[in-house]
Design a protein around this nucleic acid. Structure first.
Length: 370
DNA sequence: AACAAGGGTTTAG
DNA sequence: TCATCTAAACCCTTGTT
């Protein structure tokens, strides 16, 4: 019996330095310059962080997450550098057009973020990597032809390896990793290259002498479980061996949040007005998705950048702006009711535990689910 | 033991 | 004043069934 029949072929598509590339399409003048996409917090002239940068800027040391001021310092000698505010709405338009195009004609589709998607092309490729390669080239060509954007594409037997293949060949790459080559592909890579293994976990693994994915793949599973727990331990062993049965399929969102940076740090609840737009925005999003929430959290980031949350669960789901606002206010008041002297830099609201098939407040219309 | 709720950490883009 | 914004997956503790 062949073990190929149930084997999938999964394509991972990752749009290169997406926000910056979108800007380059809008304005060809900046194509050969360092381009930095910024999220300005509004605190002061250049306060905020870098969202992403094109490869010219990256090569010079500008990475996502660094302060805008730091990026400006790095690019001081490059008078042609371009700093642009993030225009998420525009990037979403572009993304939607691309995703809609990709969605058609595959067995399964999963958009994982604004610039990444998985396609299950098992049947369309008839399970052959030669066909899969043609499909990957075609996808790249269609995206380039319609939007002028390059992307990186990975193809393998599951999402994990396809994603790693796409990561490995970016930008503007295409890499197929056939099942028989997976062991080789992974073996000598640092463990930190595995999705889900960030700096903290990598450091912990390194301290155990586990540096390469091959080391992790061969490590005693009992030991891993005792160190990393019953869930993470076995999971680490699995991914290190290239195993991932997670299907390509859409998922419903489970939470929705909005957060802002306050103009000035606050030691008391004097930012009520700032919460109003957040509540309004969340209510609007809930209506769009026809969801009600049962759980609501206040998110607070202190002046030391520590994250604190307070949550409350409702008896019945709601989607009302007023409810979001009033519950959030209550939770924030609780922060300052504590004896601790807390100073907040950023504040936000999150709702979760959604219920669909749920009757919006005040609609007065009976739903027909039961 | 299983589950819900509240709070925190890590990862990712 | 260097330090955005959104989302998911875990982990832990506590309390209840």
């Amino acid at each position: 019996m062949s073990d190929r029949l149930d084997e999938r072929i999964v394509m991972a598509i990752d749009l290169d330095y997406f926000y910056a590339q979108c800007e380059q399409v809008r304005n060809k003048e900046i194509r050969d310059k360092p381009v930095v996409i910024c999220v300005f917090s509004g605190r002061s002239e250049d306060s905020g962080a870098v969202s992403t940068a094109n490869y010219i800027a990256r090569k010079l040391g500008v990475k996502s997450g660094i302060p805008i001021v730091t990026a400006k310092r790095i690019l001081k000698g490059h008078a042609d550098s371009v700093f642009l505010p993030m225009d998420k709405q525009y990037y979403e338009l572009v993304s939607t057009r691309i995703m809609d195009m990709l969605r058609s004609g595959c067995d399964g589709f999963e958009q994982v973020s604004i610039d990444e998607a998985y396609l299950d092309i098992t049947s369309k490729s008839a399970g052959r990597y030669s066909s899969a390669e043609s499909m990957a080239r075609e996808a790249k060509q269609r995206i380039l032809g319609s939007e002028g954007l390059t992307c990186s594409v990975g193809v393998s037997k599951n999402k994990l390896i396809s994603k790693m293949a796409a990561d490995q060949c970016k930008p503007d790459g295409l890499l197929l990793v056939e099942p028989r080559n997976i062991e080789n592909f992974l073996g000598t890579m640092p463990v930190g290259k595995l999705p889900g293994i960030g700096p903290k976990l990598e450091e912990k693994l390194n301290s155990l002498g586990i540096k390469k994915i091959g080391d992790l793949a061969a490590f005693d599973e009992e030991k891993l479980s005792s160190i990393f727990g019953r869930n993470l331990g076995p999971h680490l062993k699995e991914v290190a061996n290239g195993i991932d049965s997670d299907p390509v399929s859409g998922r419903e969102a489970t939470q929705l949040s909005r957060i802002i940076t306050l103009k000035h740090n606050s030691s008391s609840f004097d930012f009520k007005d700032d919460l109003r737009p957040l509540a309004r925005d969340i209510a609007e999003r809930l209506r769009e998705s026809k969801n009600g929430f049962k759980s609501i959290s206040a998110i607070a980031i202190t002046s030391e950048l520590k994250v604190k949350t307070k949550a409350h669960t409702l008896e019945e789901p709601s989607d009302a702006e007023e409810r979001i606002f009033s519950e959030a206010c209550k939770l924030f008041e609780a922060f300052f009711a504590e004896p601790l002297r807390i100073e907040l830099r950023r504040v936000g609201i999150r709702v979760s535990t959604f219920e669909k098939k749920w009757e919006p407040e005040g609609s007065g219309v009976l739903t027909d689910y039961f």
